[in-house]
Amino acid sequence: MRPPSPSPEQLGPPEAEEAEDGAAPVPAPRPRRRVTWQKLTVLPAFLLALLLATWLWFRGADLDSIARNSIADGNVWLRLRQHVVLTVVSTFFVLVIAIPLGILLTRRRVRPAAPAVIAVANVGQATPAIGLLALLVIWLGIGMRAALVGMVVYAVLPVLANTIAGLRAIDPTLVEAARGIGMSAVGVLRRVELPLAVPLILAGVRTALVLNVGTATLAYFGGGGGLGDLIASGITNQRMPVLVLGSVLTVALALLVDWLASLAELLLRPRGLGAS
C-alpha cells in the first residue's frame, strides 16, 4: 500500500497499465479523500467574515424606532428559522414527488408520457414565482401552506429533469448486462440504475435547494414569513440597515445551503465513478 495521496485530483484514469495481467506495477487503489480541507474551510470562513462584518456595521448603524421595531423581540431569529423551515420542507416534498416521478417516467411502459409531464413541470417553473404565489394564496388562503405549495411547484422541474436525464444517461448495455446476469427489475433499479444516476440527481437537488432559498423570500407576500419579511419592511419603511440585514442573511443562507449540498454531492457520489 502506498501512503495516501495528498491530492485526490490525481485520481484520474489510472496510468494506462496495458501490461496485460498486472505484470507491470500498477497503482494500488489508494484510500481517497474527496473532501479537501480547502473545500471544508474556504466558504465557511467567508460566510463568517461576511456575517461578522454585517453585524459590526449594523451595530454601528444609526437605528431609529421604526428600524428597531422591525428587529425587536427576536424577529430576525424567528424569520431566519421560518426561512430554513420553508426551504427544508419544500425541498423534502420536491424530492418525494420528483424522484419517484422521474423513475416512473423512465420505465419502459410509461416512457411515452415523459414529454408531457416535463412540459407541465416546465410551466411550473416558467411561471413567475410571485404570480404563482398570488394565485395559490387566492386558492389556499394566506399562510405557510400556499408558500410551500408554490415553492414545490417551482422547484420540481430541476430534480425531475435531472432524475430522468441521469437514468437515461446510463449505458443501456449495462442495464442489459444486469438483466442478463439475473437481476429482477427492482434489483436493476436499486443496484445499478439509481447508484449510477446519483451524481445527476444530486446536482438537481442542489439546484432545487438553492432555488428554494431564493423563492422562500417571496413567501412573505403570501403571509408565509421568512427573511422576506425583513427585506420587505426594509423597503417599505425605507430603512437601509434592515433591508441589508435581510438580504445578507438570505445570501449567506443560500451559500451555506449550496455548500452543504456540494459536500453531500461529493460524499454520496458512488465510488468508482471517477473523480469529478
Binding site: 448495455t173 449495462l174 448486462a177 438483466r179 442478463g180 439475473g182 449510477l196
Partner: peptide, 20 residues
C-alpha cells in the same frame, strides 16, 4: 430471472458495473 441466474452471461466491453 430464475433462468438467467443459472446461465452465465459475458458481453462485449465486459459490462462491469462501474460503481462496484
Amino acid at each position: 430471472v430464475r433462468l438467467r441466474r443459472k446461465i452465465g452471461y459475458a458481453i462485449q466491453a465486459s459490462g462491469l458495473f462501474p460503481h462496484m
